[in-house]
Write a protein that binds this DNA or RNA. Structure first.
Lengths: 211, 211
DNA sequence: GTCTATACCTTGATAGAC
DNA sequence: GTCTATCAAGGTATAGAC
């Protein structure tokens, strides 16, 4: 599945890039289990016994695949950030104008935060609980994510399409809208991730377009 | 200090309603200490020993004032939600038009999430870790907070000032922008809470105004 | 209301058999 | 690679003196 198809429209029926490969190996099953537990109760409230039980292993079985609980969090966080960044870069590359690029990136970003809300919660809320070195590495990916949108806003401002006072501040506000989706979205919500994505894409365009 | 003065302008130098009374009693000192610890490391990662030490008490001293760690979280969460709701209601009441009301409420809400970012993080991120009964009660306050903004958007839509397709969805998006401020704001950030508030107020107006 | 001392439990992680 | 058994540390909360 190529993102190219969904990037422009923002409402294609196929799922976005999965932030993980599903259940292929035992390590993947452990990541799956840990995502569900971390998202539900937080990193520190989750025990390695919870994770092992959900993955169908004994408590000791976890440590064959990950040296510590924090390494498991890091693996999940890394995969999640890489998936999100890749998705944004593809969406930006496939868009002919800054307006299209903004709609596609913010729309897909919001959609991703709904579709993979458990992964997103771990990515966004458990990030501060990484070890120092792991956090530094992830921070680099976060800056790249920010830069994708900042570059679009700056290009649109220079081209005269956008009316923006402060590009970094507006980047933050626009990403905030999308990130916060994972806080309130869950499986009970009636609206589809595609619908959320397309409306957030439009909101972002509205927020910056010259009138 | 009345909020009436800051509600309209959104950039007055006085601080917004404190979500707590500072250091008056031992219970307040414990709340202060717990806010710092919960905001920094999360509810479950914080030990009652951490809180007691920061408040200058022995580990056992906490239980004279709060029956459990969760009750301490509830007390903080309740005060925080009440302060935020009161602030929004005053800001809305002091505004003559829907546009002014939206600018004032969203602006002050964003400003509050910067100025009291530690309190806000506890309010927003530790909410799921409350006990069932406590969570239900807080949920009621959250619905009232939502309603303040939803009512403003609906009034502006009916009056023809705003161009909104879906009022509940737009309410969510606008509040999301402001709530997410507490995720990235901290004492290192150069921008003042007042400046954040006034620019987020403008962004909200831009997002819904008929052009 | 605050302390010291401690009960009792759960935790992350390891040892060693299979 | 998975298990059972277990450790050492640290957790929340309580008892009882002052």
């Amino acid at each position: 599945m190529s993102l190219a198809t969904s990037a422009g429209a923002g409402n294609s029926p196929e799922r976005l890039h999965s932030p993980r490969v599903l259940g292929t190996t035992t390590a993947d099953r452990l990541k799956e289990a840990a995502i569900i537990e971390f998202a539900e109760r937080g990193f520190h409230a989750t025990t390695t016994r919870d994770i092992a039980a959900r993955a169908g292993l004994s408590p000791a079985g976890v440590y064959v695949h990950f040296p510590s609980k924090e390494d498991l969090l890091y693996a999940i966080t890394l995969t999640g950030h890489e998936a999100a960044l890749e998705m944004l870069q593809e969406a930006a590359a496939d868009s002919p104008t800054p307006t299209d690029a903004l709609r596609a990136t913010v729309g897909n970003f919001a959609r991703w935060h709904a579709e993979w809300f458990r992964d997103a919660r771990v990515v966004q809320y458990e990030f501060p609980h990484l070890s120092h070195d792991h956090r530094e590495h992830i921070l680099d990916l976060r800056k790249q994510i920010n830069a994708v949108v900042a570059d679009i806003l700056e290009a649109g401002r220079v081209a005269g399409d956008f009316d923006i006072e402060d590009v970094p501040a507006t980047t933050l506000a626009v990403l905030s809208m999308a990130v916060d989706v994972c806080r309130w979205y869950d499986s009970e919500i009636r609206r589809s991730p595609e619908s959320i994505g397309s409306s957030y894409g439009e909101l972002a365009v509205r927020l910056v377009s010259r009138r």
